[in-house]
């Protein structure tokens, strides 16, 4: 099977406040349709790894391939486009633009990509909201909905450009168990039904057990 995302010998050090080797020789592949979770103690470097994989952090050694293409060393503008088209990101805290409506938030990456007509984009965005059962919130301001709802809006936004992979940094970490289950079910369905690749950092053992594969990290290394 084709790997969607491949990391080869990723190393990263923080130079301040003291020299700190945070990621040590990280190599792994994510295949298409795979639902992978990353586990590990707090501070072991999970978030740091995810920021590198999502192309937001470019200060590392090693190589990163997306759809078999080397993206390490690409221009910032090019990386922005790659993020826009191929990578969906869901954060622990629901990062929405508070002054925009739910629908506008979901449409934003598609408008930036500008591959589709505005009508198509609106239509797609409403479709995504329907999939996530929140279409009734479309016209509401992003600042006026609950945490669980916000996280679902963030997932809808991550899905809008049909990315190659969705990454999540503890996406359920801030939700009660009911909402956390809800988000997990959504991920599971996206993986099973739409063959979406997912890479999700989590602390939740039960959550991780239900994924296809668990990567465990300790002190900046992958141990399994």
């Amino acid at each position: 099977m084709e790997p969607i995302l491949e990391a080869r010998h990723i190393n990263k050090s923080f130079k301040k406040p003291v020299l700190f080797h945070v990621l040590k020789d990280i190599s792994f592949k994510i295949h298409k349709g795979e639902f992978t979770s990353i586990m590990g103690k707090s501070g072991c470097g999970k978030s740091t790894l995810l920021y590198i994989l999502s192309t937001m952090d470019t200060d590392y050694e090693g190589e990163l391939y997306l759809n078999n293409q080397l993206i390490t060393g690409a221009e910032r503008n090019e990386l922005s486009q790659i993020r826009n088209k191929h990578i969906g990101f869901v954060f622990q805290f629901h990062y929405l633009l508070p002054e925009f409506s739910v629908l506008e938030n979901v449409m934003l990456p598609a408008k930036k990509l500008a591959e589709k007509s505005p009508e198509e984009i609106t239509h797609n965005a409403i479709e995504k909201l329907k999939v996530l059962n929140i279409e009734h919130l479309a016209k509401k301001r992003a600042s006026q909905i609950s945490g669980g709802e916000k996280q679902r809006v963030a997932i809808a936004r991550a899905l809008i450009n049909s990315p190659s992979i969705i990454m999540g940094d503890e996406p359920t970490g801030n939700l009660d168990s009911h909402n956390a289950d809800n988000v997990f079910t959504i991920f599971r369905e996206l993986s099973d039904l739409e063959h979406l690749s997912l890479l999700v950092v989590t602390h939740d053992e039960d959550f991780a057990k239900k994924t296809d594969r668990i990567i465990t990290m300790e002190d900046g290394r992958i141990i399994t």
């Binding site: 503008n77 922005s80 826009n84 990062y95 934003l108 930036k112």
Partner: peptide, 16 residues
Amino acid sequence: MNDIAILKAIGFSGRD
């Protein structure tokens, strides 16, 4: 700041 970070995370360039 948050808006800027979100915009950049979802693919807006620094120039945008």
